[in-house]
Design a protein around this nucleic acid. Structure first.
Lengths: 193, 193
DNA sequence: GGCATAAAAGCAAATAATTTGCGTTTATGC
DNA sequence: GCATAAACGCAAATTATTTGCTTTTATGCC
């Protein structure tokens, strides 16, 4: 990712980065994505365009950088008392957030960047959330599938449908969660009460 | 999709479209994606840049248009004699093609376009291929999962990993296929011989 | 704390891409 | 064939991007 940690976190650079990120987010709320250009962002941020070109290279890298930051989860998955319900609640919220217009735009921005590290980071954010749910379940003595299995059976289908077709509805998400939980007790796991 | 069927399929327009598509594909084999601009494409195609701007709007729409065309399957899935092996063979080839550098670039191009119809088309190409496998299996009296189930259990995880992480290896694809086939005879389906 | 160093930002000129108005070519339907 | 309008070409105007150079300011060292 361009323009992120690694170079000069000190005063001015950090201020410029924050200002540019803020400008992008502000502009997104009031114009179409196609009208947001680097000169426009620079004006909003009170910065000269060449600063943005030199730090981020092009607008796709900048938008991806902002999107990754916004996709970083800001809280732990809600705890309901058992792993299956935790996963279901998390998956429903995830599907809804990612299906929304801003959600889809952020994913698109992340994937459109040349630098693939943003997508990798987003995937890790998701894994970490699931890890929390899995650890909680195991701490209570429940069996819970591998994180990778949840990625394959729950996260991937949700994301695929958002990217390539129509967003999944709640019933479909519930079916995906059931399908994933079958990995624990293949025959015994029925529908939730 | 811009510049495609619907407007004037007749002589000159078709010739321009073909020429531009050909120029894009030719340029992709000999330069970096970042160096391919509309003026460069126009020169290669022997066309004036404003023609491209007017027909496709911007380079992302054009690249998406070309990518969709290239992602259209050019043959039926190979027939091995049973549905499970057909699916496995198809999935392995799909994963390999989509993981390759050109494959990943085409997917990225399709997803980066504003116009979401390209992604939808690609999803349908895949569904049609799976439909062929499913119909063949059913024609032989075999049970076979729904196309949508295959999309969720096999296609989605492959695509997710390509887009967000590392490409899946053959063993993983095989596991995905096994997981999907379990939907038919939950307890009885073992590993392939 | 002050000073040397170099990273990052600003500024402005040069280059390149995009848009647009208008004239010309050429599919398409009658 | 002929009228019509879509699509293209051309060139001027606008806008975005790159680049060389100067100035500001973090950062590390004494």
């Amino acid at each position: 990712m361009a323009g992120r940690e690694g170079l000069r976190p000190g005063g001015r650079s950090a201020r410029v980065q924050a200002s540019v990120h803020g400008a992008v987010q502000a502009l997104m709320t009031r114009m179409e994505r196609g009208d947001i250009t680097i000169p426009v962002i620079a004006a909003e941020a009170g910065v000269t365009p060449s600063t943005i070109y030199r730090r981020w290279g092009d607008i796709q890298e900048l938008l991806a950088d902002v999107a990754v930051e916004r996709l970083k989860p800001d809280m732990e998955p809600v705890a309901t008392g058992n792993g299956r319900e935790d996963l279901l609640a998390w998956a429903e919220q995830y599907a809804e957030e990612m299906s929304s217009k801003p959600g889809r735009e952020m994913i698109r921005d992340v994937l459109a960047a040349q630098d693939g590290s943003g997508a990798y980071q987003c995937c890790n954010f998701t894994k970490q959330q699931i890890e929390v749910i899995a650890e909680r379940a195991k701490g209570r003595g429940e069996a819970f599938p591998d994180v990778d299995a949840i990625m394959d059976r729950v996260v991937s289908p949700i994301m695929y449908r958002i990217l390539f077709g129509e967003a999944p509805d709640a019933a479909h998400v519930a079916r995906l969660v059931s399908g994933a939980m079958e990995l624990i007790s293949p025959a015994l796991v029925g529908e939730p009460a």
